[in-house]
């Protein structure tokens, strides 16, 4: 049932200039269930991307444990596909070549992997673009390809590192709806890092709010908005605003303590199903 389990995660690193040991992640624990969409939010510089990099196996952890599909993580692997902010597509491969990359690494025969690749291109709305090269696609299409490339590989969990941050606002809305639609259709397990509160509320089943450095889990907010979701109706529902406000307050509260922000964090109404994480 649990696809990803993070227990007592801590990350220290040595500052290259001062030689001091810095604690980036103090103590982070949470889990993501199979077929669940979980976002990680936090004030800027709180190390949410570091958490993702540790889960992906790009960065080693100092303390704690990360378990994916019952196995402790050590190094990158195909069970944890990553969608990058920079898309990270292979420029020398066609769109189809990018999608089937993971299947090729697994040794899936050509006919089978091409058929599957095409199926996933259809899913993200890139059917008929298979022979193009990534640089011939728009930014939004490139990121949809990034999603298809990971999903075609059927990972235990799809890790997304601020995937829409470098995309213009209108396209971003569209991509968020596309992602929700894909999620509602196929129910992959998603671990999504973002700094956009509305985006997190719109997409997620639960939101893990981290504190500033050294980061801890401040709160896990459950988003029980009905699916399928789309922006037009979501923005009109009071529940959506309520949850977004609640998450915003958690963030502002934290940043206010650090930077002396003038916003008053008071009057927080508890959203349904909020739970304080065990630290």
């Amino acid at each position: 049932m649990t696809a990803l389990e993070i227990t007592g995660l801590q990350k220290n690193y040595v500052d290259a200039y001062s030689g001091e040991e810095v604690t980036a992640i103090g103590d982070v624990s949470f889990s993501v269930n199979e077929g669940e969409f979980v976002s990680v939010l936090g004030p800027s510089g709180c190390g949410k991307t570091t958490v993702l990099n540790i889960v992906a196996g790009f960065v080693n952890l100092t303390e704690g444990e990360v378990v994916v599909d019952g196995r402790a993580v050590s190094g990158p692997g195909p069970d944890r596909g990553v969608v990058f902010q920079s898309h990270a597509l292979f420029p020398w491969k066609t769109v189809l070549g990018n999608v089937v990359f993971g299947l090729r690494m697994k040794g899936v025969p050509r006919a089978e992997r091409d058929a599957k690749g095409k199926e996933f291109l259809e899913l993200v709305g890139l059917g008929g673009f298979g022979h193009k090269y990534p640089h011939e696609l728009s930014g939004g299409m490139q990121q949809r390809l990034g999603v298809a490339r990971v999903l075609a590989n059927e990972p235990a969990v799809m890790l997304m590192d601020e995937p829409f941050a470098s995309i213009d606002a209108q396209t971003r809305r569209k991509l968020q709806e596309d992602l929700t639609r894909i999620f509602e259709k196929r129910h992959p397990t998603v671990f999504f890092v973002t700094h956009d509160v509305d985006e997190a509320v719109f997409l997620s089943d639960r939101i893990v709010v981290l504190s500033k450095r050294p980061s801890r889990v401040r709160e896990i907010v459950t988003v029980d908005l009905p699916r399928p979701r789309e922006w037009r109706t979501a923005l009109e529902t009071p529940e959506f605003r309520e949850i977004a406000n609640r998450v915003n307050e958690l963030l502002v509260d934290d940043e206010g303590a650090a930077a002396g922000a003038d916003e008053d964090p008071g009057g927080a109404t508890d959203a349904d199903g909020t739970a304080v994480a065990g630290v």
Partner: peptide
């Protein structure tokens, strides 16, 4: 070669030789 490309390949199941 961008580091992200190496990471993407590793997380899609490519070993060091690949």
């Amino acid at each position: 070669v961008p580091r992200e490309l190496l990471r993407a390949a590793r997380s899609l199941g490519a070993g060091r030789t690949r």
